[in-house]
Nucleic acid binder design. Structure first.
Lengths: 344, 344
DNA sequence: GTGAAAGCGCTAACAT
DNA sequence: ATGTTAGCGCTTTCAC
C-alpha cells in the first residue's frame, strides 16, 4: 500500500545530501555561494525527493509574499475585463507573482478583502474599481500595501494609476457622429458616480459644445453598463416623439442590447439611427450590424498596471511615472456598420 | 510626518490589553474559553490597534491554508466561465476561503502551477480543464491536494467531478433539429480531444442514429469553441454544394460567428438554415436572431464544485458523492429564433 | 565554503 | 481562566 508520506522538508534534503539545512537553502536561493560539487549534490537530492520549498515558511521568515490581490467590481463586464486580467496575469506570472482575484460584492466581501490585505500575506494590490473596498471607515489601503489602480481611478492621493484617456475617447464618439451629420445625440450612460462614466460624460459634453450645439442636443438615459441598461435605454428612446439620430452607449454590451431592441421595434441601424459603443470587445464584431466602438487596449492596460506594481515592489521608481503618477493610454475609434449619415 | 509603523503583532495587543499572547489568541479563535471581561478587554485592544492576525504565521503554525487554486484553460470563453467562477468564488468566500485563478497557458505556466500546488500554501484544488497541468511526468495532482473537477473531467481515478450531462445536452440539440424536420446536420466541433467535445460528439451521433438516419446525415467541421472557428466553419459550410439545413455549433460564440458569416453571404437564419449553440451565455439573447442554445447551470456548476471541495476539506464525505464520485447536472434547451422548420 | 542557531508571528500543549 | 513555552519550515547572521 502506498504510504501517503508527508511532503519532504528541507531537513530531509539535507540528510539525503549529507549537508546542513543552511547549505540546502543556499543551493536554492544563492547557488553561487557554493562549491560546484556541493551544489550538484544538493540539487540531486532535491530532485530525488521531489522537494519544493514550503512557501509559507519562506514567507514568514523572509517577510515577502508572492501574492497580488486584484480588486474587481463584480459587474465589470466579463468580456472586457477578462482581457485586462489576462494582461495582468501574464505580466505578474512572468515576474513570479501569483494572482488573487477579489470581487467586490457587498459589504461582507469587501470586509474580507480588507482583512486579506491586512493579514500580511499579500505583496501588493491592484484595483480596477473607482470605489475601493471601505467598511466603516476602514479602507483596503490602510494596510499600506503597494498599490496601483487600473482602468478606473479612485482618486486617492499617491496612488499611481494606469488609465484610458476616457475623456478623449468619449469625445471621439461624439465627433464621429457629428462628423457624419448627426445633430442630436441620445446617450445611455454608465452608473451614476462611476469614475469612467463621470470622465466620459465630460468628453461628450465637450464634444457637443465644440460642435457649436447647445445642451438640448444631448438626451441622457441612466444606464448601467449592462445588457439590461441597453434594453431599458432603447425603450426610452423608442418612446421619444422626435428621436435623435445619434446614439452613444456606455459600453458595448449596452450598445448591442440597444440595437437589438430598436431593431425588434422596426427601426434599422444605421438607416434610422447610428449607434456607437465603448470597449471594443470581440463580440462587437459579431453582432448585427457590426458595432462602431472605442477599442480599448485592454491587455496593455492590465499589463502596464501590473508592470508598474512589479517595479514598485522591486523598489524601482518607474520611469513611466514621472508624469505625476498617472499613465494614460489612448483608445481608438473602430468604425463598424452601425454608424452612417442620418437620412435626408 | 506620518510614521509608517509596522502592523501590530499579537504581542502588541497583549501588552495593550495587559494579558498574555495566548489570551489574545484565544479571544480571537476560542472566545468561549475566556471570561467576558477579559475577552472584552482584548477585543478593545484589537480594535484600538487595528490588529489583524498574520495569516502566514497562523498557517505555518496550524498547517491549514485558506487558498484554493482554480485551474482554468486560458481560452475558456470568458462569458461562460466567468459565471462558473462566480459560483465558485461566492461559495468559497462564504466558507472563508480565498480564490486563486491559475490559467493554463503553456508549459512554463503549467510548471508554476504545479510548483504552487507543491509549495504548501494551498488548501485545495479546483479544475475546469480536462487536461491537467503536467510537465515531464509531474502532475499538479502529485502534491496530493484535495481536488475537484468542474465542467470537464480529467478522468483521473478518485477525482470527484461536477459535470454537465454533455451527452444528453448534445442529444437535445440534435433532437430539436430533427424534430423540426431537418434531415442533415452540419456540426462545428470543439477542439479535437477536448473532454466536452468528445462527450457531446457521442450525444450527437446517438441522436442521429436514434432518428434512423445514417452517418452521412452528419457533416463535421473541426472548430475551436471560438469566434474564429465559427467563421471558418461558415466558410466551409458555404462552399458545400448541397448544404445541410441544420447546424450545431460547439458553443455560443461559435454559433454567433457562424450566423453572422452566413448572413453576410446572403443566407437567412432560420429561413435557409437553423443554428443551435451551446452554453447559454447572456449574449445569445442579444445576437440576431436570438440563439437557440443549451443553457448550462453555470453558477450552480461552480457552486456545487466548490461546495464539494469545502466538504472534503472539512472531512465530510459529501452525500452528493454517493453515486460514485460524479455529480451530474442537466442543461436545457432554450429555444430562440435561430431555429425553425426547413423550407419546403 | 559550510554549519549552528536564532528567530519570523502565531497556536496549542502544558503548567499554574 | 490565564500564562509560559515549544515549535511550524525556512533564511540568515555569525562562527568556524
Amino acid at each position: 500500500m502506498e504510504q501517503a508520506s508527508r511532503p519532504p522538508r528541507i531537513g530531509d534534503v539535507a540528510l539525503q545530501a549529507g549537508v546542513s539545512v543552511a547549505t540546502v537553502s543556499r543551493a536554492l536561493s544563492a547557488p553561487e555561494k557554493l562549491r560546484d560539487e556541493t551544489r550538484r549534490k544538493v540539487l540531486a537530492a532535491v530532485e530525488a525527493l521531489g522537494y519544493t520549498p514550503n512557501s509559507v515558511a519562506r514567507q514568514l521568515r523572509g517577510g515577502s509574499s508572492q501574492l497580488v490581490l486584484v480588486v474587481v467590481p463584480r459587474r465589470s463586464n466579463p468580456p472586457f475585463f477578462s482581457e485586462v486580467l489576462h494582461g495582468i496575469d501574464v505580466t505578474l506570472a512572468d515576474a513570479g507573482y501569483v494572482l488573487i482575484t477579489g470581487y467586490m460584492e457587498g459589504v461582507d466581501r469587501d470586509l474580507r478583502l480588507i482583512e486579506l490585505a491586512a493579514s500580511g500575506n499579500l505583496a501588493g494590490l491592484l484595483t480596477t474599481s473607482g470605489m475601493l473596498p471601505e467598511v466603516s471607515g476602514r479602507s483596503i489601503l490602510d494596510a499600506g500595501l503597494p498599490a496601483v489602480a487600473i482602468c478606473a481611478d479612485p482618486l486617492v492621493p499617491g496612488l499611481p494609476a494606469v488609465l484610458l484617456d476616457d475623456e478623449a475617447a468619449a469625445r471621439a464618439q461624439v465627433d464621429h457622429l457629428i462628423g457624419l451629420g448627426h445633430r442630436r445625440i441620445f446617450y445611455v450612460t454608465g452608473p451614476t458616480g462611476n469614475y469612467n462614466e463621470t470622465v466620459r460624460h465630460r468628453g461628450i459634453v465637450a464634444g457637443i459644445e465644440a460642435a457649436g450645439l447647445g445642451p438640448e442636443a444631448l438626451t441622457q438615459y441612466a444606464g448601467n453598463y449592462q445588457f439590461t441598461g441597453g434594453v431599458a435605454g432603447a425603450r426610452a428612446y423608442l418612446e421619444m416623439a422626435d428621436r435623435p439620430t445619434g446614439v452613444i452607449c456606455g459600453n458595448d454590451e449596452c450598445a448591442v442590447a440597444f440595437m437589438k431592441s430598436v431593431t425588434a421595434a422596426g427601426l434599422a441601424v444605421p438607416r434610422d439611427l447610428s449607434v456607437v459603443g465603448f470597449d471594443g470587445i470581440e463580440f462587437a464584431d459579431y453582432c448585427e450590424p457590426t458595432l462602431t466602438t472605442i477599442a480599448q487596449p485592454r491587455f496593455a492596460l492590465g499589463a502596464a498596471g501590473a508592470r508598474l506594481l512589479i517595479d514598485i515592489l522591486a523598489g524601482k521608481t518607474p520611469a513611466a511615472l514621472q508624469g505625476g503618477g498617472k499613465l494614460v493610454m489612448q483608445g481608438h475609434l473602430r468604425v463598424g456598420d452601425s454608424t452612417g449619415a442620418p437620412r435626408g
